[in-house]
Amino acid sequence: MSSPTRMPWGFVSALSATQLISYGTIFYAFALLIEPMQRELGWSKSALTAAYSLSLASSALFAVPIGRLIDRGYGRAIMTGGSVLAAVLLALWSQVHNYPLFVLIWIGLGASMSAVFYEPGFAILARRLGLLARKGITMMTLVGGFASTVFIPLTHLLIDAFGWRSALLVLAAFNLFVCALLHLLFIPPSEPRKKAAHSPQVAPTAAKDPNHLLKSPSFWCFVATSVAQGMISTGIPLHLIPMLIERGFSLDVAVAAYSIIGPAQVAARLSTAFGERAISVRALGVMTMVMSVMGFALLPFIPAGSWLIAVFAGLYGASNGMMTIVKALLPVEFFGRENYGAIQGMIATPVRISMAAAPFAFGTLWAWQGNYDAVLIICLGMALCSLVAFVLNLAFARRV
């Protein structure tokens, strides 16, 4: 598919809106549903979160095949079907009384995540926009960054007003009547793969079979970077408030620090959008990893009650926000636009498995040590490893 000469803002805006709704209804709403489900059904928090972790593992299994289907031109069917599936499963969840069924629902939601979250959205943008993909991807992540800001309070209001079961039906309706319709109306219909193969935007080094990348040191360095950052991005949010309280911060200060992370993510993505011409994707990646290292190197030395905790939260949030853009754009530059969906799936598979394990692993470390010191050391080590792996990635990529 040839690259448009002007940005199709209607198409980009529609896909961005569906990211906001998909993340808000599937990913973020869960945290608010735990407590009312515990009260009514008597299931433990660990049992509920175990089902959620299984969904991330399930999404990893579907990532590559879904990416391959998008590469073949079936993006509209995949994302529309994913939103319909999410709607059906959320509605089924609203009626659940049986724990095994709840687990199966979340395994299915993992498949839906693979079809409607960032990776398939990035693949469709890259396929449609060509050289304009960076601007479109930045727009998508900028809008998607408000998912928690919009849907956490909205879900809270729905649960208070109607109860958790009816709230889930409203969230299901968002997926069916907004996301599915936008995907159906705005994503171009499927086209034969051969047209994409002759596109002038296809990287000259791209191979027809993306499995050749499994022999590439650059690819594995990028996977290592993504895995380390992915574990940090899912492990820390669950443990940050108790970690700060353990270090002597009051609950109010810990919550205030946590609230900085979301705006910092959005601000970093907005800065990236304005600095598109001044900052290359490679430089953006280095900045992302350096900020992560700086944040975790600073945290152990911040005294209780110090305003410097806001600096940590800002660095952590900005690094997370920029990492989403780096993961979207760098594979195009290093590995080519051909098979972009499959390549994103190949990267997402180990990343999502590690993301599913991170909260449990951090909790186990805390229980073993009796404090969060080991978790902080591990996070700093992973941040440093992600920086080293990214620099090696740049070095290997220059030799290709």
Rank of each mutant, 00 (worst) to 15 (best):
L32Y: 09
M322T: 13
A29C: 02
S199H: 08
A115W: 01
W43K: 09
Y23S: 08
K208W: 15
Y52P: 08
L365R: 02
G341R: 00
L284I: 08
L92R: 08
L56K: 03
T138E: 07
S16N: 11
Y74R: 12
L33S: 05
M139V: 08
L54M: 12
K135V: 09
T138N: 12
S386G: 07
I347M: 05
F296H: 06
L92I: 06
I107C: 10
I279R: 05
M346A: 06
A310C: 11
G81K: 04
L41C: 11
A133M: 13
L380E: 08
L284V: 05
R277V: 11
K195L: 14
G42W: 03
A224T: 11
A167T: 03
F122Y: 06
L240V: 02
A318E: 02
R128P: 09
I232E: 02
I78E: 00
A47I: 06
E35Y: 14
L329A: 13
I260C: 11
S59N: 02
G235K: 01
A51L: 05
A361M: 13
Y52G: 02
S319G: 01
W43I: 10
H239A: 02
S280I: 09
K327H: 10
S16M: 05
S292T: 04
G136L: 01
L185P: 08
L184M: 15
F335Y: 13
K135C: 10
V253H: 13
F186S: 07
Q265W: 01
C179R: 05
I187R: 00
Y118H: 09
G230R: 00
L69D: 13
G75L: 05
W9C: 00
A297S: 11
S58Q: 05
K215E: 13
A374D: 10
G145V: 09
G67M: 06
H212G: 15
R127S: 10
L54Q: 10
A87P: 03
L142A: 09
I66T: 04
K195V: 13
L109G: 02
G73R: 01
F30N: 03
H239L: 02
L41N: 07
R247M: 04
G235N: 04
L157V: 14
S3R: 09
I245M: 15
F151I: 00
F30T: 02
L125I: 12
L181H: 10
F362D: 01
S216C: 12
L394R: 00
M7H: 01
P350V: 04
E35P: 11
L384G: 04
A147D: 06
S226T: 07
F360Y: 15
I377E: 11
G121E: 08
C179N: 11
T80R: 07
F30A: 03
M79H: 01
G248T: 03
A126C: 07
F301Y: 15
M231C: 09
D209L: 13
E35C: 05
L109I: 05
E40P: 07
S3F: 15
L131T: 15
I260N: 05
